[in-house]
Amino acid sequence: MNQHHFAFFDEGSKKEIRRTILKAVAIPGYQVPFSSREMPIARGWGTGGLQITLSIIGREDCLKVIDQGSDESVNAVSIKKLVHNTTSVEITERTQEATIIQSRHRIPEIPLQGGQILVLQVPTPEPLRQVEPREYMTKILHSEEEYSGAWLQLFEQIMKYGRTATGADHPVYVNSRYVMAPSPIPRFDNVKMNESDALILLGAGREKKIYAIPPYTDVQSLAFEDYPFAVEEFSGKSCRFCGATDVFLDEVLDSATGDVHYQCNDTSYCLEQLNSHEKAKEESSYA
């Protein structure tokens, strides 16, 4: 038996975060302030997501944690261990089995389902921060739906590079009201937020904000008519392990040979593909 209180937090902290989550769901895309707690990991390492996970999780839940698509990176493993040690909930790597998926920088390749909650870790929740450093001013801009700054940023990228050049965290319009930072997911994943079957909760621990996208909510990536939104291009490339083509691929440079390889970013998806190929091979060889 562990000697921690269930889910690490005291009940008062959970209550405050739970109230914040409900407000976030009721006002899609609006960043609700909350009193971010001290956590046993440093701010900026997923404390926002972790605080949401710990406040919503129950004994019946099954948790998956991924970091940049990987179930086995240090950050994902330490968060999983902390949650498991304080709740004893089941941990999984299979996207389909999880009821709560906490993630940094990716939305899994396997489509999310109705019963699932996706918790995203957010470093910079304010999409207007680069154009307006003062928090109170950005709150006023949001209240007035004054998003020229967000549009101008994209316009400047087009002027400079001939296209919008957001590497990740491409801003989205939620429910035709709030411009929102989708967290640093690739543009490839932005489209998964639109009319999602699963509830999406976003937590920024250092910036003390929680926001949400309810299921079946309109989420549109900011774009211009003559420069439409485009996701990362992987045509003609496939995963070197499992051969997948319609997924987000990592580019890996072999420094010895100078060769460039591509592989699935979502490791559990890749592994599942490999296993199913193996199984198919086995079955055909027996026959």
Partner: peptide, 11 residues
């Protein structure tokens, strides 16, 4: 109870 409220608020 919270998860029930959350689910109902989200849907």
């Amino acid at each position: 109870v919270f998860r029930k409220i959350l689910d109902s608020m989200a849907r």
